[in-house]
Amino acid sequence: MKALRLGVGIVVALVVQTTLARYLAGGRVVVDFVLVAVMYAALADGPLSGLWAGTVAGLVQDALGSGVIGIGGLSKTIVGFLAGIVGTQFIVAQSPSRFVVFFLGSLLHSILFMGLYVLLGLRTFEWSPSGVLGQALATAVIGTLVFALGEFLPGAIERRRAGRGPRH
């Protein structure tokens, strides 16, 4: 069931990234929705979920991109696993702490992703601190919001059901 949930989450993130991204920020969206999904899985379900979500999502994203298959997968696997460990070792139940984890996770992902490409001599990047920090900030905002929404919705539905109550 958890695997199915992970799979659906990844597909939804990919669809959002590829379909709705065209309508955001003039088509040049800076948020990596797939990374948000991976970190969400890691923080919600632990390092193993983060590991698998990162591997699967990263490989699919690589296959759909124009780069080397595995670099995005490796970056997301590491970030997903580490985010899962942080989620189990520290208390990240509040929005500010989650924001920090998402922000640092996105930063680490950018460093790993760009670093691997540069290390292998496959691509050069114009170092833009504002671009990397901006992407991390946007990812953190979206991630924190998605988490808040994920917690709010089930409770709201439950409250609504309870509010209706049985009719006598």
């Binding site: 990234q17 590829t18 065209r22 990596d32 759909l64 124009s66 780069g67």
Partner: peptide, 15 residues
């Protein structure tokens, strides 16, 4: 017609 954007923000592809 372009039906989708790239899957990763780091790569510039469309479908």
């Amino acid at each position: 017609q372009i039906i989708a954007a790239g899957a990763a923000p780091d790569f510039r592809t469309v479908t």
